[in-house]
Amino acid sequence: MNVCSSYLAEPLAGTAKQESVYVLFEWPGGWSRDVLDGETFGAELTGKLRAKLKGVAGLQLIRRPGRAGRQVGKMHRCYLVWAREAVMEMVLLTGPEQILDLDLTGPGRNGGGVIDAPLMLVCTHAKRDQCCAVKGRPLAAELDRQFPASLVWETSHTKGHRFAPSVLLMPWGYSFGRLTAQAGAQLLARAIEGKFFVPANRGSGLLSPRCQVAELAVAQLLLQAGEELAYGALELADAPSSTSPVRVTHPDGRAWDVALEQREVAGVVSSCGDEPKTARAWVPRTEPVLVLGT
């Protein structure tokens, strides 16, 4: 059997889950293959949730790692994330039907408390792909042991199980893949300080694949030069033509043009059991070129 996450040919950059608003609902078990396929919450409620969330927000089911995560009391934690504003709030709900009553148009409209700490969501969705359970659960358990205060959660499908362990970082909505325990600990330690982390970074869910790759190229350039960078600090202006560079601007006024091209990547296995295929990936054609500033 072809185990998808064992194939490392595909670049990580440019593969992030694209979403700007998230509902992270604590639901300890019974995640069907697609949490909105009707098997997790029943057909009637699922239909209502789909209508509520379509084009508005992405739903992630979450639970704490280990046995503790399989037990939830009468109240369920629900984190609401607006990645563009980098704002995360937490409300307590009695059940998934209360998601229907949430106002997801912006922060501060549901009576929730603002969460200042980051959350790391590690995909452990076994029914979607076995790699997520085999590689995700040990990572979530280890990082939960190192970082207290409920910073680490198991989550349902994050897109990209071929990159397991696959991770979402909130409140910024960045995706990461192929994380080791050491890299995961470094990622979370920097996230607590709001600092950008490049290794294993797949990109921002707010950006197109081209812009994800361009942002990561400039971020790597800055961090290698010893500069620090916060999530969301860089501004991206995608070009109307796919052959034109992406402009990346720093808050201090510096700007870089990143020339990109699509290349064929052989040996990509999308899911466990699939045959390897050839895909296409955006990659930088050259290093970022400084066009404004010194």
Rank of each mutant, 00 (worst) to 15 (best):
L92F: 06
Y79F: 15
I99R: 13
E89T: 12
V81Q: 09
C78Y: 14
A86D: 04
Y79T: 01
W82V: 05
M88S: 06
L104H: 01
T105E: 09
L100N: 04
I99P: 07
W82Y: 11
L93G: 06
C78Q: 11
T94I: 01
V81W: 07
Q98M: 08
V81N: 09
W82N: 04
L93K: 00
V91A: 10
D101M: 04
D101A: 14
G106C: 01
R84F: 02
P96G: 10
M90S: 12
E97G: 07
L93P: 03
Q98W: 04
V87W: 01
T94C: 11
Y79V: 05
I99G: 08
L100I: 07
A83N: 02
L102Q: 07
L80R: 07
D103Y: 08
M90P: 02
V87T: 13
V91T: 13
V91E: 12
W82L: 02
L92N: 12
M88A: 05
L104E: 05
V81E: 09
L92D: 14
Y79L: 13
Q98N: 01
L80A: 07
A83M: 02
D103A: 05
A83E: 00
L104W: 03
L102C: 06
L104A: 07
T94D: 14
V81L: 08
W82H: 09
V87E: 14
V91L: 13
I99F: 12
L104C: 08
E85G: 02
V91H: 15
D103K: 09
Q98Y: 07
V91W: 14
G108K: 14
R84M: 06
L104R: 04
L80Q: 06
P107S: 06
D101P: 00
D101L: 09
A86R: 15
V91I: 10
L102F: 05
W82A: 03
T94E: 15
Q98F: 07
M90F: 13
E89M: 11
A86Y: 01
V81F: 10
T105L: 07
V81S: 10
T105H: 00
I99H: 10
